[in-house]
């Protein structure tokens, strides 16, 4: 039996103001999956993420999301904004904010939420940075903080939008290691949009390539053998 489904897209078209960016996409994300979404700039990777997150309704078709995701339990790692780089907030303030979700009229954090935040900071090795200012951290540390926040929000699915942008190679390696760990040891499904094919393919089990007119969706090995993947390999060589 296959693991349970988290998100199912059936014949989905997505876009803005009547213009479709993506058309007729079928995609299933299951518990424990590790999916890399690749494609050229402007091919609709970010649009697809917005659809998966439930922020953009499909123009056609259906995006089914598991009940827990509908309740806001999504671990999302968005691209960093300019405003965040000099934001005065401590690491624990940022991580705790992942415990909020739309449901419920609770105004303050409960003890359970606070210990959840501490646990996730410990898991990502940023517990000793707890009272440091977010803006004083290195890029890699900031990503860990945002990842800890995402873990507070969700227990089964992480969605990452170009997580290694602006990181040096060592910090990027580090991030991939954490993601592989979460995926293998904790059964966390990972969906990631990335430009960095080479390293990403090492961890990913499934690849979705969004091309101008066609999609490729299959295992990493199949992808490298496919026409789209071959083009990438030629570029590498």
């Amino acid at each position: 039996m296959k693991p349970r489904e988290l998100i199912v897209c059936r014949d989905v078209s997505l876009g803005y103001e009547g213009q479709s960016v993506l058309t007729h996409l079928d995609l299933t994300i299951r518990a424990g999956d590790y999916l890399c979404i690749v494609g050229d700039n402007g091919s609709g990777k970010s649009t697809l993420l917005r659809g998966l997150l439930g922020l953009l309704a499909p123009q056609q078709g259906e995006i089914w999301r598991a009940g827990e995701l509908r309740r806001g339990a999504v671990g999302y790692l968005p691209q960093q904004t300019r405003a965040q780089r000099d934001f005065p907030a401590t690491v624990s303030e940022v991580v705790l904010s992942g415990c909020l979700n739309g449901r419920g009229m609770r105004f303050f954090y409960s003890g359970a939420q606070k210990s959840r935040a501490l646990m996730n900071m410990g898991k990502l090795g940023i517990l000793e940075l707890k009272d440091q200012c977010y803006r004083d951290l290195s890029g890699g540390q900031q990503q860990r903080v945002l990842l800890a926040r995402a873990l507070c929000a969700a227990s089964s699915l992480l969605i990452l939008d170009e997580p290694i942008t602006g990181l040096d190679p060592a910090a990027a390696q580090d991030l991939y290691k954490i993601l592989s760990y979460l995926n293998e040891k904790e059964g966390m499904a990972v969906v990631m949009v990335t430009h960095d094919l080479k390293t990403a393919l090492r961890g990913a089990r499934t690849v979705l390539h969004i091309g101008r007119s066609s999609y490729f969706c299959g295992t990493a090995a199949d992808y490298l053998a496919s026409p789209q993947g071959r083009r990438f390999r030629e570029e590498e060589a």
């Binding site: 922020l55 904010s97 979700n101």
Partner: peptide, 18 residues
């Protein structure tokens, strides 16, 4: 706390249903 979340990161807050 919600104002903090919305101020710090709108996209994340939106995704978690705020």
């Amino acid at each position: 706390h919600k104002l903090f979340a919305v101020t710090f990161d709108e996209s994340f807050s939106r995704a978690t249903g705020l």
